[in-house]
Write a protein that binds this DNA or RNA. Structure first.
Lengths: 156, 156
DNA sequence: CCTTAGGGATAGGGTTGC
DNA sequence: TGCAACCCTATCCCTAAG
């Protein structure tokens, strides 16, 4: 059972508009928690605000000025893996984290999924095997991004 | 300009009716992509299905939208299992609950019953093995429902 | 975990053609 | 004219990415 359709009232639209005026675009949660707007928007979520603004904007909200296109990093990485040559292994150290490229290769190879995987799954796989830092996820994501953007020479 | 009017055939109406029976109201896209109904409804869109159902319902469709679903989830899940590839296992942690898909796969594989199983049995099997939350049964059922309705990509 | 961006699906009012 | 079939689009849903 989904939520029944709930039409926006003029009061709600005004509050949303004033909220965007005050906080700027994309600050939906901030608008919702501002005591100035919390009451009129009591039964709207931050996602509702985003959706409504998209309608009010004539449908072109979201295509930001730089024309960014979102990349599915993991799909890209999986493609690049086809060109990877696994290094001839010599020293097998289990504790310290190996270079990121090697870990990424290991994770993607082990998590054998034709559709690829995602960062969360990779972290879950790698974390118990190696003693990684607390912000491992962030670093791993950055590395993935870097590999894709820079042509990813798969040298260990 | 517009699409020429295309009257509904009895076969189409039957398929639509059976589809609603299986998935419940408001799951037009699911009906359309179900191999059981895809063929007879090949040249109808999800919106067409919704419109036709509204006509058949004497015009009061939507007032209490989205009825109940009558799927035998476990039968459906068992079918989907045929397409599942068990991930090459690497880390064996016994305490924390693995992803729901993995647990579902494990339960259905272990409870070897040609007729499939039910939620109660699955919970009984999984609960002592993993430390699950109190509302585990509810979450498990929700996951099963989601897997069936969304075509069940068996990603871990 | 939580939030945002964006594509997709649905609900319901409106329109068209027989 | 009435109604089946089709159109329009605000609202809501799903999920990748951060």
């Amino acid at each position: 059972m989904a939520k029944p359709k709930q039409k926006w009232t003029p009061e709600e639209e005004e509050a949303l508009s004033a909220g965007v005026e005050k906080y700027g675009l994309g600050r939906w949660k901030n608008i919702l928690t501002d005591p100035q707007f919390a009451s009129p928007l009591a039964n709207r979520s931050n996602v509702d605000l985003k959706d409504k603004w998209r309608n009010l904007s004539g449908g072109d909200y979201g295509s930001n000025s730089r024309g960014n296109v979102r990349i599915n990093w993991f799909e890209e990485i999986n493609k690049l893996l086809l060109t990877y040559q696994e290094p001839s292994k010599s020293s097998v150290n289990k504790r310290r984290a190996p270079p990121y490229k090697a870990m990424i290769y290991e994770a993607l190879s082990s998590i054998d999924d034709p559709k690829g995987t995602d960062a969360k799954t990779m972290v879950k796989f790698l974390e118990p095997k190696y003693d990684v830092t607390k912000n491992f996820r962030k670093l791993l994501t950055a590395k993935l991004r870097n590999l894709v953007l820079n042509g990813a020479e798969w040298r260990p």
